[in-house]
């Protein structure tokens, strides 16, 4: 459990940003990750009173506030319609409903955790991290950035016409971290494959819609790097990647797209 001596609810992003420049202070999102550590902080900065807990949808995009809970995202009708339920599939295996009611999108994305289902999913959807000072950064670039003192205020997903999306993960046990996470989307003949929990941070690869799915799955799986940890070896993960990519690509090759 973390320790802290102060706790503030900033009234503006500028106030939050200023507080966050002090190295001994820390932004608290859902608290799930901080809780697992035992760091001592001066002041925790709570963003929950800045109106960042809503999902806006219009013709062009979805804008997901950083303090939106995983459960809000999971049960959002518009996003599930847009992704053919892939959003729900990417979230429903994370711990339990109680955890997902307080864990946030901001915490998951800012953390850029290797095990993150959320980062993998939103990367395949071509999401953008909205940074208070740094502006809009594609998630695939954001995932490679070092931790800094900027604040993630939202994640934006620009709507693509006739997009199809699919998500699957492999877990040794229900509610555990994934051994591998695979999110894919198909739009205008291009497939985006995001692989997470390799166990490194998610990365994404874009390719033309293949004719030979088995070959595509093999080649795509081979173009990512894998590592071993207590959950699985690198070789095992590579094989699971091939299986999940193949299954997902088969689903993308058939079925209905958003807007059909």
């Amino acid at each position: 459990m973390y320790k802290c001596t102060g706790y503030v609810f900033p009234e503006s992003m500028e106030e939050a940003y200023k507080l966050n420049q002090k190295k001994s202070n820390k932004i608290i999102a859902g608290g799930g990750w901080l809780k697992l550590g035992s760091r001592q902080y001066a002041t925790l900065i709570d963003l929950s009173r800045l109106g960042l807990d809503e999902i806006y949808e219009d013709e062009e995009c979805f804008k997901i506030g950083a303090m939106v809970s995983l459960r809000q995202l999971e049960t959002h009708e518009g996003l599930n319609l847009y992704t053919q339920g892939a959003i729900k599939e990417s979230l429903k295996h994370i711990v339990g409903v109680q955890f997902r009611n307080s864990a946030t999108i901001g915490g998951s994305i800012y953390g850029r955790f290797g095990f993150s289902d959320v980062l993998t999913m939103l990367m395949a959807l071509d999401g953008f991290a909205g940074l208070y000072k740094g502006g809009s950064v594609p998630l695939e670039d954001f995932a490679k950035m070092k931790y800094d003192r900027d604040i993630l205020s939202a994640v934006t997903i620009r709507k693509q016409k006739n997009i199809k999306t699919v998500y699957s993960s492999f877990r040794n046990q229900s509610t555990d971290f994934p051994v591998l996470a695979c999110a894919m989307s198909l739009s205008e003949g291009k497939i985006r494959t995001a692989l997470g929990a390799r166990p490194a941070r998610a990365e994404v690869i874009t390719a033309e819609l293949p004719t030979d799915i088995d070959r595509f799955a093999n080649e795509t799986a081979n173009s990512f790097a894998y590592g071993g940890n207590m959950r699985a070896s690198a070789e095992y993960r590579r094989h699971i990647a091939y299986v999940l990519i193949k299954r997902n690509a088969e689903i993308l090759a058939g079925g209905k797209a958003y807007g059909d």
């Binding site: 925790l44 955890f99 009611n101 307080s102």
Partner: peptide, 13 residues
């Protein structure tokens, strides 16, 4: 009204 884990949910919130 929403179920949360009280071990994790920040008290000040």
């Amino acid at each position: 009204g929403k179920p949360v884990l009280s071990c994790t949910y920040p008290l000040m919130r």
